[in-house]
Amino acid sequence: MASGENFSDFFYAAPDGLKLHARIYGDANVGHWPVVCLPGLTRNARDFHELALYLSARAVVRRKVVAFDYRGRGQSAYDPDVANYNVGVEASDILAGLAALGIEEAAFIGTSRGGLIIHLLGAMRPEALKAIVLNDIGPVLEADGLAHIRSYLDPSPKPRTLDEAVNTQRGVHGGDFPALVDADWERMVWALNRETTQGLMPDFDPKLVETLAGLDLTQPLATLWPQFDALAATPLLALRGGNSKLLSVQTLEEMSKHHPNMKTITVEGQGHAPFLETGDLPSAIAAFLDQAEHQHSSTRKAQDQS
């Protein structure tokens, strides 16, 4: 296990033997739920760096944080079979990583595709999910949002310098993210890209783009309402970017009907998906996790006494 800036690198084997990676922040924190962070389609563990530092070192209740790189992203190995880039395989990979780390239960934070994986984990290992934060994702995906993602990934931008990369991201996302400042855009660029001898390069397998190519966005998309309904007993915080194209206001309202105790935050001035380290989001997420864990402990104590 190698060390980085306030984190350690953890490598483990997927069920099919592929070498996968996660970042570990903080100590074991016996007595408090760890936090598992799952990124978006082409993103990686670096997306959660600032939030992980907050939750593991600066929050009132400090927690161990595990941020995963899916296969084909970040420091995880690329898969020679593009068909394995799917949420089912990736969910199994996450369970393998949790087993390797000895984590039986945790709070989960899922951005975009990470939230879809959480839906599947709820069916595969419901007892592992103690609290959930869904970042701009739900059981219904809007075709316009998927079309937007496909448009800026095909072809994937190939910036060579920081300034070029920042300008590229602003050109694609600036209209949806007027709240971001220069430092936010630079963090996004460093999270999305890796440094190479040829300059900055997107830090994911280019074949990932093929997984979107076959989607027929003129037809109704499959939904995950049964999987979402299975999460009804789990404390849930849903975040939505005020300018999101992927998670609609109508879907968020319907989610609240299916999960009456769900808490929601709309992040104004941001689109898909909100930057979790900005504004009051780190403290709001920490407070949600603390309240969920406190309520769980109180309920268990009352059951033990009855």
Rank of each mutant, 00 (worst) to 15 (best):
R43P: 15
L116T: 05
A233Y: 01
L121Y: 01
G271S: 09
A52L: 07
G4E: 06
I132R: 08
P159I: 08
Q303K: 08
H148S: 01
L95H: 00
H21P: 01
E5Y: 14
L38M: 13
D205C: 01
G271D: 07
G199Q: 05
A91P: 13
S3L: 13
S76Q: 10
D154N: 15
L51V: 07
V166A: 04
A284R: 13
M255N: 08
T266Y: 00
P226H: 05
L146A: 12
S112N: 05
A284F: 04
E253V: 06
W33E: 06
L41C: 11
A230W: 04
D79Y: 04
A284T: 03
L55H: 05
S298Q: 13
T197W: 10
P206G: 12
A147L: 02
I137N: 06
P282F: 09
K207F: 04
G110C: 13
N84L: 15
G26N: 13
R73F: 12
F228M: 09
A100N: 00
S8T: 14
Q303N: 13
V36A: 15
E210M: 12
L18V: 10
R113H: 07
D136R: 03
P226W: 03
P80Y: 04
V189Y: 08
P15L: 11
L51H: 06
M255L: 15
A302L: 14
P157K: 02
A143Y: 07
D93C: 11
I149P: 00
V189I: 11
G242E: 13
G269T: 02
A302E: 14
A191F: 05
E5Q: 12
T264Q: 15
L281T: 02
G97C: 08
L120H: 04
